[in-house]
Design a protein around this nucleic acid. Sequence first.
DNA 1: TCAAACATACCAACTGGTCGGTATTTTTTC
DNA 2: GAAAAAATACCGACCAGTTGGTATGTTTGA
Lengths: 199, 199
Amino acid sequence: MSRAPRGAARARLIEAARRLVRLKGFAAATVDEICAEAGVTKGAFFHHFASKEALGVALVQDWSAMTGAMFAAHPYNALPDPLDRVFAYIDLRRDLLDQPLPEITCVAGTTVQEVYAQSAAITAAAQESLQSGAAHVLGHLREALAAHPVAGVTAEGLARQFQVAVQGGIILAKGAGDAAPAREALDHLERYLRLLFGR
Amino acid sequence: MSRAPRGAARARLIEAARRLVRLKGFAAATVDEICAEAGVTKGAFFHHFASKEALGVALVQDWSAMTGAMFAAHPYNALPDPLDRVFAYIDLRRDLLDQPLPEITCVAGTTVQEVYAQSAAITAAAQESLQSGAAHVLGHLREALAAHPVAGVTAEGLARQFQVAVQGGIILAKGAGDAAPAREALDHLERYLRLLFGR
DNA sequence: TCAAACATACCAACTGGTCGGTATTTTTTC
DNA sequence: GAAAAAATACCGACCAGTTGGTATGTTTGA
């Protein structure tokens, strides 16, 4: 148990919270536990965060930034055809499912389930995260719909359906104890899009 | 605060747990709180349930039975055409979304998010509940696919996608503070089915 | 009259949070 | 550019209230 370098406590606390929240949810992840996992004392915790709720907000915001950077940096964004980008994004999300259940868990999705009626601040952060998650495909979908309009379908609504498939897939995966249903959810989403766009 | 009639404690505890778990999740719903909400003492709680986990199992099982009975009793099951039944089921689920967020929350879905790595017993009950939820449309989908086969699509997989749309929709709804995204998720599911079956 | 259905009182462990203190930077002042 | 001052980062003991759970009653219906 080597002591962590000075200045790293905040980041370590968020990382630890991410691991624990994905494993057991926000309420069940206690402050003491998070501190122990981060190798930091409670003094440090409440130096960086005014409350457990404040940590929750920071955790979800960090999650948003982390996943956002990851998707933005991915090479699939360079494909010329927008619909190719959409399908490549689905492939990417499918690849991400080759991990243990805690690691495929969405921090924003799990957390908002628990706190939507408890903490407006965390809920707002989660909403932002879910929206920014949908925003990754939004541009591609807009282009694709511009080239091939579909009656009654908006890019925003379709982008939200990506989140629906991802979040719903995670729940089924947790029930089954296996990521397979989450993969299947993406398969159906892809089939839906191919039918919509005639591919 | 009139005292509840004798023999009703167990049922009242499950009802209270259902309300509280839907509102704040399983971990955050404490035993004391559940007892207070049920108008019952802790002695009664631990008379009927060996532990909080045992209550969780009973809660999810009760949820399964409750929703199961509700869907089974619905008139839509009498429609002659299987695909009509499928679309009527979607309509029904859409109607159910005209309620406050806690009431549109799925007990099995929320709970499994928290406990999948904590309690095998509750997870198993939740899996059973999610499966039996999918089973409501399974029969109709089987018939519909028998009359109109679709390459690469199974009735089981399609039934699971219903759960994906429902569960994913709930998460987006909680983030948005409004049921609209959940309704939209069902709209997309319906459009998908119409494309698959050529309606 | 006896077991089941509750109530009451209690407990050890843990909960989020506070507080006084110390080590380390950074900023200011001359 | 060094000493002094002021933040900042972190520690760990402590606190009041709460947690799930227990042990021991009392009531009630068959």
